[in-house]
Design a protein around this nucleic acid. Structure first.
Length: 641
RNA sequence: GGCCCCGUAGCUCAGCCAGGAUAGAGCGGCGGCCUCCUAAGCCGUAGGUCGUGGGUUCAAAUCCCACCGGGGCCGCCA
């Protein structure tokens, strides 16, 4: 496999081996501390302060030792071995590899090659996806693309959480205003948007009814302080309703009117919840209809972002209907009865005790604190965690995989730990080890807290549309309307995906329009722009001539470009091993900065013969590597922008 | 209170896992560059007690300890 940087390191090793022989001591472990040398000091550097202390001046020995093919010079400065590259040889190697491999360049034997299942995004089918799901989707999808690029087999799953507590609200609300919802959808409103409103309004109405009842009761008992507290709470929900009245009077009023017919809405919610889990035909049909509408909306949004799934797993099917939940309970009771307790009729798994007794912290990568886990409510219904365990078993029964990567917010650290512990307790040790919680921190609104139930959030659609319209201002003068639309969409998607994936996932991300709408350097559009420039040169050239000769005096920028291009397979391997996509955005930004700087300074098409051929190959290599990285990051490629 | 994550330039972040030479980018600021392959670009410039205090080391943004500050979780929600 072609990994120029690795070949260079092999030569460094050879050099160190020769040096070892000369010194009579194995110093090849210094290979682990190879770093980049500062500008003008060559390419690589190895700190050898210890060696100098031990052997005094090393210069003589260094000069005595022959230099392997790819190394042009080794100098001892400030306690460092500064190693420079034989750039002609190396350029041949790098450009040759890129030319012959094309878009496959970057794959090396350091890439993990295994079989993965990635579950990501998995937004609750009750309301439109918000920007937090955007982060999740961008991470999950790019991880999938990265691992696939490496030659791994990857299946991508979306877990449709159709048994959650919010589903009866969606179902009942939808049932009440079904005709209105469908006519809205027919007239072009996004289905997830309509259902989202239905959900929020239904939830608010239910809360108001529930609180009113409590308030009445407390007042009758003379507990006015407590009643007043709840009145404040109720007022908040009333103001939510008022907001919706301003936004969509027709829908809100129909819902209030329709829901008003129900005697005890809070009770009805509970009944629907149970009925859904038990497979009641009518309730199933209504909720599934609403869920399908939401998913239709999800798909439209995810399509725009270039995010695709191999499978949409309905919780009701993979965890409930197949008897998954009862199997979880039974196996746990059989295999680890001493860790299962009853508490007020509810069934509790003592995950805390289990972790403590078996000391599984390292093996299952657990936090030091584990809460107890409730698996069944006192009314016998299951909880999310229980169904999640069943879902894991469903994967185990239906697929073979080396790792199951689940992209889930960090706020679920404890439940995800409980999940692994429960599986372990049930005897699925291997499965428990293979499940990886790929955690990411929240996306916050500057100064605001997002709340789905209160309808306070920036949706992914708004994000895409707003970014697109900003881009549109820039491109509308340059293209026909249809072209402009395509370009604006592609640039918006590039901007959004880059901005999500360029920040380390374990950093909380404060969402700001300024940041996303920055279309300059260190952004998706900057990468796209650089690609367009490189691409445009290649298109104008028509063909990339065969590289027969590397000019003897290539420019400093050209040398830098060759070096960075040679690092690509290393970056990919590292990113794939560590599952860190920021390595790729960082790399691609560095490459773009360098290339743009080169582009401004040196003509390619109009350069002298001999030079021209080399430069075209170099530009083509930049284009290829940029294109490859963009594919992984999901940043659309354009030929004009 | 316990557990997890974070703290680096006015702002957003990279670098920390595998310690090494003057701590890097971008945004924003200031000053320049379009008869020439797309100026969404390029060049220059200002801007930093790497949260604080100890420790380990020839060497600490990086490793260890304590503390401070921010976010998240600690539900018969997801």
């Amino acid at each position: 496999m072609h990994n120029p940087y690795d070949e260079l390191i092999r030569d460094v090793r050879i050099f160190l081996e020769s040096l070892s022989a000369e010194l009579g001591k194995d110093i090849t472990n210094y290979l682990n501390s190879v770093t980049r040398a500062p500008p003008n000091y060559g390419y690589l550097a190895i700190p050898v302060h210890g060696l100098i202390r031990e052997y005094g001046n090393l210069e003589e020995v260094i000069n005595k030792v022959p230099k392997p093919r790819l190394i042009s010079r080794v100098l001892l400065i400030n306690g460092y071995l500064n190693i420079d590259v034989n750039i002609n040889e190396y350029a041949n190697l790098v450009l040759g590899a890129v030319n012959s491999l094309g878009e496959k360049y970057g794959v090396s034997d350091k890439c993990p090659r295994a079989s993965y299942i990635i579950e990501h995004t998995s937004a609750n089918p009750a309301k439109p996806m918000h920007i937090g799901h955007g982060r999740n989707a961008a991470l999950g999808d790019s991880l999938a693309r990265l691992l696939r690029f490496c030659g791994s087999s990857v299946r991508v799953h979306f877990y449709v959480n159709d048994c959650g507590d919010q589903m009866p609200y969606v179902g009942i609300g939808y049932y009440v205003v079904k005709d209105l919802v469908l006519s809205r959808v027919k007239s072009g409103v996004k289905p997830d948007e309509v259902i989202g409103e239905v959900y929020s309004i239904t939830y608010a109405v239910t809360e108001i009814k529930r609180l009113s009842k409590q308030i009445e009761q407390l007042s009758n008992e003379g507990k006015y302080d407590e009643a007043n507290k709840l009145i404040g709470e109720r007022d908040e929900w009333v103001s939510v309703i008022n907001n919706f009245l301003n936004r969509d009077r027709e829908l809100t009023e129909s819902l209030i009117k329709g829901l008003g017919k129900f005697e005890d809405l809070p009770l009805m919610i509970k009944q629907w919840s149970r009925a859904y889990e038990e497979g009641d035909e009518f309730v199933r049909k209504v909720i599934r209809e609403a869920v399908d509408l939401v998913l239709r909306g999800f798909r439209a949004t995810l399509d725009r972002l270039g995010v695709y799934f191999d499978s949409w797993d309905f919780e009701s099917e993979v965890a409930v209907d197949n008897g998954g939940v009862s199997r979880v309970i039974n196996e746990l009771l059989t295999r680890a009865p001493q860790y299962v307790e009853r508490e007020d009729g509810a069934l509790i798994f003592r995950a805390d005790k289990y972790a403590q007794d078996l000391g599984l912290w390292d093996e299952l990568r657990l936090p030091r604190y584990i809460p107890k886990a409730t698996l069944l409510r006192s009314d016998g219904t299951s909880l999310y965690l229980t169904r999640d365990i069943a879902y894991a078993l469903w994967f185990w029964a239906n697929f073979r995989f080396d790792a199951l990567i689940r992209v889930i917010g960090s706020e679920q650290t404890h439940p995800q730990a409980q999940l692994r512990l429960a599986l372990h307790a049930m005897g699925y040790h291997e499965l428990a080890r293979k499940i990886m919680h790929y955690s990411y921190e929240m996306v916050n609104l500057a100064g605001m807290k997002m709340s789905g139930r209160r309808g306070v959030y920036v949706t992914l659609d708004e994000l895409i549309n707003e970014t697109k319209s900003r881009v549109m201002d820039l491109v509308k003068s340059r293209f026909t309307p249809e072209e402009a639309d395509k370009v604006a969409e592609a640039v918006a998607v590039g901007a959004i995906r880059y901005s999500f994936v360029s920040v380390s996932p374990n950093k909380p991300l404060t969402f700001s329009w300024d940041k996303v709408l920055n279309l300059r350097q260190n952004s998706g559009p900057f990468i796209q722009y650089t690609y367009v420039r490189a691409n445009s040169i290649i298109e104008k050239a028509g063909v990339v001539p065969r590289l027969t000769n590397i000019p003897s005096n290539i420019a400093g920028e050209e040398k830098e470009l060759v070096l960075i291009l040679g690092e690509y397979p290393e970056v990919i391997a590292k990113a794939a091993q560590d599952l860190r996509l920021e390595y790729i955005t960082e790399y691609v930004n560095r490459l773009s900065l360098l290339f743009n700087s080169y582009y401004e300074k040196y003509p390619v098409l109009n350069s002298e013969p001999g030079i021209r051929e080399f430069r075209l190959n170099l530009v083509n290599a930049v284009r290829t590597v940029l294109g490859s990285a963009m594919e992984i990051l999901g940043i659309p490629r354009l030929s004009r922008m």
